[in-house]
């Protein structure tokens, strides 16, 4: 394992030290591993909290700031944060208007956020609503699985719902919008290589040079199918087709994200976006906005994911609203 680290067991703590040093506009609670905005939540504004295992940066800490999250709780690498972290963040960001928990659909995340919401409501009387993202078409959504994983749509949701909260909408309408955005998004990911969890010290799975994994999540877990390596055009086809088969994206504007898994250079991500755009054009899918880059990653995994989100005028207006975070910034 070759990584820019000291002791593998201190990676998260030391990374948060760096976040605090690089972003004096943020407040980092090193004990609870929570990243907050530098200023308190404005009275009447719904607090937005997300969190999850680390290793997906810039998600979630990189999305704390004006127009997105109020706080992000960092778990160990690929491990959900604990209920006491989310309970603490909930107490800190509540301005009286309540708090929305944005949770990616993984067994551990859902359980820990559920316990946190129960504790916060029982002990502090804070109104908490939760939205669970589950946009990954690689997972069959049935009673036979833990349900679809929350992946790329989480990034788009945090931006859109963050803008709505900034407008001063109440908790119910912010939560309803979040559920609507989640229901309108679909993603599919692939890996060219595995990733190496620092504490494990070696790649999570072996992938021969001539093979790739289709339908991976964001935790270095193997995908749904191992298939022969192909060119970018063919990879784009294998990513876009299952998305379009799952939901009709024609007849209105869409937001598209071509996301890197952490180990693929931007030159390849743009090349892939070109391929994806061709396929969407051919399928009559209108792309109104796009995002290309590393937004929800899987440590050093090489590969990418595609996310499509059906939008409308309201969602596009919220998308275009000012955002000022370490990971996304425009209009400010």
């Amino acid at each position: 394992m070759k990584k820019l680290i000291n002791d593998p067991s201190n990676v998260l703590a030391e990374s948060l030290v760096g976040v605090a040093a690089a972003h004096p506009e943020l407040t980092v609670d090193h004990f609870n591993r929570i990243i907050y905005r530098g200023e308190k939540t404005r009275a009447g504004k719904v607090g937005l909290i997300s969190g999850g295992g680390s290793g997906h940066e810039p998600l979630h800490g990189g999305f704390v700031g004006l127009g997105m999250l109020d706080a992000a709780c960092a778990g160990e690498v690929f491990t959900s944060p604990t209920p006491d972290q989310m309970q603490e963040a909930t107490k800190v960001v509540d301005s009286g208007a309540g708090v929305l928990h944005i949770v990616k659909n993984y067994t551990g995340d859902v359980m820990n956020f559920e316990m946190a919401a129960e504790l916060a409501e029982a002990e502090s009387g804070i109104k908490v609503e939760s939205v669970v993202t589950n946009d990954d078409v690689a997972v069959e959504d049935s009673t036979w699985t833990a349900g679809r994983r929350g992946v790329g749509v989480t990034v788009l949701l945090e931006k859109i719902v963050g803008a709505a909260a900034e407008e001063g909408r109440d908790l119910t309408s912010v939560a309803d919008l979040a559920r609507r955005v989640n229901a309108a998004g679909r993603s599919m990911g692939m890996a060219l290589t595995s990733c190496t969890v620092p504490s494990a010290g070696k790649p999570t799975f072996d992938l021969p040079d001539d093979m790739m994994e289709m339908g991976v999540g964001i935790h270095g877990e193997p995908g749904r199918h191992r298939v022969p390596l192909a060119g970018a055009a063919e990879i784009a086809r294998q990513l876009v087709e299952p998305i379009l088969a799952d939901l009709d994206f024609t007849g209105g504007p869409n937001i598209v994200m071509l996301n890197g898994m952490g180990g693929s250079p931007l030159i390849e991500l743009y090349l892939m976006y070109g391929e994806v755009k061709k396929l969407l054009d051919a399928a009559g899918v209108e792309v109104a906005r796009n995002l290309v880059g590393n937004y929800i990653t899987s440590l050093d995994m090489a590969g990418c994911s595609v996310t499509l989100l059906k939008a409308d005028d309201e969602i596009l207006t919220l998308w275009d609203a000012p955002v000022n975070t370490a990971g996304l910034r425009w209009g400010v």
């Binding site: 778990g75 959900s80 944060p81 604990t82 006491d84 993984y106 067994t107 551990g108 359980m111 820990n112």
Partner: peptide, 12 residues
Amino acid sequence: MVSTVGGASGPL
């Protein structure tokens, strides 16, 4: 366990 393990194993 709940406050140090995380993941699914912590709550369980």
